[in-house]
Nucleic acid binder design. Structure first.
Lengths: 234, 234
DNA sequence: GAGTGGTCTAGACCACCCT
DNA sequence: GGGTGGTCTAGACCACTCC
C-alpha cells in the first residue's frame, strides 16, 4: 500500500484534505477529536492542531471549543489576492511604466466624499488625478482624494514625478481598507484620458484606506482601459 | 506607562505590528532573531514564532532560514474573499432569490473553451445558461460549461429547479481554480436577459474550477446587472 | 461537569543558506 | 561553519460550551 509515514503537520493536512475530498468525512459531520487523530497518525496533538487550524483558516473546517471540528457545509473557499503597486503591476507584464500627473488641487470635497472619508464639513482635501501608462499607452486612470490632516507629509512630495499610489504604499503601509469592484461606462473626459470610446466598459476599482482605526487616509478610484482583466488565484 | 504584559502570541503580534506601524523596524530592515525577541518579551520562542508566522502570512514580513526576518518593502496586502453561492449572496441582501434555466444542451465546445477546459477535440460538454433573480428582477446571468467526464452525476440533476452553481459547490469538492474579473459590454441578447440597455457596462466574473490536479470541472461566466459592485474587505 | 480546542512552555533536532 | 527559522514533542493549563 502507499502507506507513507505521517510525521509533519503538512502530512496530516494532506491526509485530512484527502479524506474531505473523498468524503470520508462528509459536510456537516464531526471529525474525531485531536487527541484521537494524534493517536491514529502517531504524532503529537499539537501537530494535528496545526494542520486542522490551517485547514480551518482555508474555510473547509469549522472548529469550536467543546463542540469539536466540523466539516463546513458550504465550503466557501477564500481567495487571496495581492494589491499591487501599479508600477510593479505593469513592469511584471514586461512593459514600460509611465506616470503623468493630470491635476493636483487642494479643494473642498463633494458631500459624497466627505461621508466616504468621514471628514468634517469645511475641511479641504488633496485631490489628485493622474494617468499610469504601459509602453506609452494609457493603462489606468487614477482619481484620488487624500486626507492631509492624517498624512501632512504628502504636501511636500513632488507628485509630478512620484505617484501618490506608490508614495502612500511605501510610507503608510500598515492599515486596513475596503475595496469595491465594478464596471462603469467611460465619460467623455475619461474616454479622452484613456484613449478609448466614450461609453466603453471600464473595469473600476474603488478603494478606501484607513489607519487604525477610524481616520480615512485616502479614497481612490481606478479606471482601467477596456479589456483589462484582474486575475485571482485560489 | 501602558506596559501590558506580553504573554500570548496575539500580544506579540500586536506589539510587532505596532513597531512596524511606528517604523521602529523600517521596510527592508532585519528584525532581531526569534530567540532574542523571546527573551525581550519574556515568552517562549514558539510563541514569537507563531506571531511572526502569522504576520508573514499577511505579507508584511519575509522570513528565511539563516536569513532572518525582514520587513517587506512593498507590503502587498492580501485580500480574502469568499466564493459566493449566488442564492446565499442574494438572500444576504434580504432579497427574494429566484432561478430560471434558460437553456441546457450537450454540445461541442468552441475551440477557445476546449483550450480553457483542457478537453480533447470531439468531446462534448454540458452547456447551461441560467438567470438568477433578486425580487423577481434579473441579477446575474450565468453561462456555464461542465465537463461531464469529470462530473457524470450532473447529467441526472434536474437543473430546472436546482442551480448548477449550488449543486456543484455542494457536491463536488474542488481543490482549486482561478478567477478573472473584468468589465464587458452587454450584447443584445445579454441585455434582453438582464433587462438593461445593449452596450451597458457589466461587471463580469469568469471562473475556472478544477480538481487536483489538472481536470477542469467547470468554466463559468457571470454577467452582473449594471451597477453591481463586488465588495472586499482587507 | 466534562470534553473539546486554544495556547504556552522548554527542549530538541533539522533544513537551509549566508559568509 | 554556524546562525537562522521550521517543526515536533510531551506536558500542562485554560476557555469555552454543550449536556
Amino acid at each position: 500500500m502507499g502507506d507513507a509515514a505521517i510525521n509533519s503537520w503538512l502530512d496530516v493536512q494532506t491526509e485530512v484534505l484527502r479524506r474531505l475530498h473523498n468524503r470520508v468525512w462528509k459536510p456537516g459531520e464531526l471529525l474525531p477529536a485531536e487527541t484521537d487523530l494524534a493517536i491514529e497518525f502517531g504524532c503529537a496533538r499539537s501537530t494535528v492542531n496545526r494542520a486542522l487550524q490551517a485547514i480551518a483558516e482555508e474555510g473547509l473546517l469549522e472548529r469550536k471549543r467543546r463542540g469539536g471540528t466540523r466539516v463546513v457545509v458550504h465550503p466557501q473557499r477564500k481567495a487571496t489576492f495581492t494589491i499591487p503597486v501599479i508600477r510593479l503591476q505593469i513592469e511584471q507584464l514586461q512593459r514600460d511604466y509611465g506616470y503623468r500627473l493630470i491635476s493636483r488641487r487642494v479643494q473642498r470635497p463633494p458631500l459624497k466624499l466627505r461621508e466616504c472619508m468621514k471628514v468634517p464639513a469645511g475641511q479641504n482635501l488633496l485631490h489628485i488625478k493622474a494617468l499610469h501608462t504601459a509602453d506609452q499607452m494609457p493603462f489606468v486612470l487614477e482619481d484620488r482624494w487624500i486626507n492631509t490632516q492624517v498624512v501632512p507629509e504628502i504636501a511636500t512630495v513632488d507628485l509630478k514625478s512620484n505617484s501618490a499610489n506608490e508614495w502612500l504604499v511605501e510610507n503608510v503601509p500598515f492599515s486596513g481598507g475596503d475595496y469595491s469592484l465594478s464596471a462603469s461606462m467611460a465619460s467623455d473626459t475619461e474616454a479622452a484620458a484613456l484613449s478609448c470610446e466614450p461609453g466603453a466598459s471600464l473595469f473600476t476599482v474603488e478603494r478606501r484606506t484607513h489607519t487604525e482605526y477610524l481616520s480615512v487616509i485616502t479614497a481612490v478610484r481606478l479606471l482601467y482601459i477596456p479589456g483589462y482583466k484582474m486575475r485571482i488565484d485560489l
